[in-house]
Amino acid sequence: MSEKQTFDSLKVSEKLIEKLRESNITEPTAVQAQAIPLIFEGKSLLFQSETGTGKTYAYVLPLLTKIESAENSVSEGTAAKTPQIMIVAPTFELASQIKTQIKAVSDIKTALLIGGAPIKRQVENLKEKPAVIAGTPARLVELLKLKKIKTDGLKALVLDEADRLIAPELRDFTMELVNSVKKQVQLIAASATITKSAQKLLSASRIKADGSSETEVETLFLPPEDVLKKRITHLAVFAERRDKIDTLRKVLLAEKPSKALIFTGKLNQVENIVSKLKYKGIECYGLHAKTEKTERKSIIDRFRSGKIKTLVTSDLASRGLDIPEISHVIQMDMPSNEDFFVHRAGRTARAGKTGTNIVIGDEYEMKNYARIEKKLGLTVYPKVLFKGKLTAPFVPE
């Protein structure tokens, strides 16, 4: 049996380890234990691991340790003046979260470069010579074309939620970034799901014009920890469409979640749900694609800190976001794609915790839920509201 890995044995810097301890992170997850040594070796890597397994720190810790080492080995006057790490994320929320996670463990200067925010301010931030830049693909491409980002000193390019980044709507921007950096730059791609076409596309990006490969792209696929089966309790509550919001209100009162994330696939339903819950005295907030950027950030920050207990959202927030202590995910409809179901449910039971996923659905949606239950090997418990509690349905003898 191999010896259990620690952050120290993985050669993560002591400064970072101390900061991790302050956040009650004392042991590496499985993906961290396997990915960190490969990234330290400078290998280009595509790695896949379930939601909530610590993928961000799997690449952040070794890359930040490398920057610290480089800074310690050179005199102050010769420190790097251009970004050393570029992290690309599909959404403003995920890019912002990555910066927050870096800030939690390190004082290495990091710039957030996202669309929808003033580009002038971001240009000013780049003049402060950040070692790490994190942003969304379109804005990063825009800043590259304006020659505000220099990639000469870039050591690593990270694609977080890589499958989203190479989906049709973002692929052109992402590949422009990938192809704009030198072939020897370390390429790291992380996701809960990486397709064969994604592997092929990213591997091909490292091949030079003469057909040779500067850096071979390795793959790391972590066996599923079955978070969906083992740590999440799945419940089904039947409701006709017209009764759903009132049923949601009763479910919230019955379950008393410490922190609840409520999903609807219909953008225009977010405000409708929020207004009706507030009318009934339940304090909550809404988040969707049309929410103004600064307001989105404020809402997510307050939800993360616990100042907001109930958040209603479109599928904007269903992927990549790591909000601690979400006790309940409530789905007000069944998403058309089962991947969305998985990513929605995966917002709870993160970092080794347990959680509850509740679907409030009509007859059609319950049939769809039964199909997903069978396909994913889940156990779904039907529940009814009785005297202010969620209980098993009464079955007459």
Rank of each mutant, 00 (worst) to 15 (best):
residue 129 K to R: 14
residue 352 G to D: 10
residue 268 N to E: 15
residue 22 E to R: 11
residue 142 E to Q: 10
residue 64 L to Y: 03
residue 177 L to D: 09
residue 324 P to E: 08
residue 262 I to H: 07
residue 336 S to I: 15
residue 336 S to M: 15
residue 354 T to A: 14
residue 348 T to R: 07
residue 283 E to M: 11
residue 93 E to Y: 04
residue 242 R to Q: 12
residue 38 L to C: 02
residue 80 A to E: 13
residue 346 G to R: 10
residue 300 I to D: 00
residue 75 S to D: 15
residue 125 N to H: 11
residue 191 S to V: 03
residue 201 L to Y: 03
residue 88 V to M: 08
residue 131 A to H: 11
residue 243 D to N: 15
residue 31 V to E: 09
residue 44 S to L: 05
residue 256 K to V: 07
residue 249 R to D: 11
residue 309 K to S: 14
residue 233 T to Y: 11
residue 228 L to M: 12
residue 284 C to M: 01
residue 287 L to P: 00
residue 292 E to L: 12
residue 366 M to W: 09
residue 219 T to F: 12
residue 83 P to C: 10
residue 306 G to L: 04
residue 125 N to E: 14
residue 24 N to R: 13
residue 290 K to G: 01
residue 199 Q to L: 09
residue 35 A to L: 03
residue 109 K to D: 09
residue 120 K to Y: 14
residue 274 V to C: 03
residue 272 N to C: 06
residue 7 F to E: 03
residue 44 S to H: 04
residue 82 T to W: 10
residue 135 G to V: 03
residue 384 V to W: 01
residue 287 L to A: 01
residue 46 L to E: 06
residue 110 T to I: 07
residue 306 G to A: 04
residue 263 F to Q: 01
residue 45 L to F: 01
residue 330 I to P: 00
residue 76 E to D: 14
residue 379 T to F: 10
residue 52 G to D: 05
residue 165 L to E: 03
residue 389 K to Y: 05
residue 258 S to A: 10
residue 141 V to P: 08
residue 302 R to Q: 13
residue 27 E to S: 10
residue 392 A to E: 05
residue 302 R to D: 14
residue 176 E to C: 06
residue 386 F to L: 13
residue 159 L to P: 02
residue 326 I to W: 11
residue 121 R to T: 15
residue 98 I to W: 08
residue 248 L to I: 04
residue 265 G to A: 13
residue 236 A to K: 09
residue 345 A to F: 07
residue 89 A to F: 09
residue 357 N to K: 01
residue 30 A to E: 14
residue 207 I to S: 12
residue 80 A to H: 13
residue 274 V to R: 01
residue 257 P to K: 06
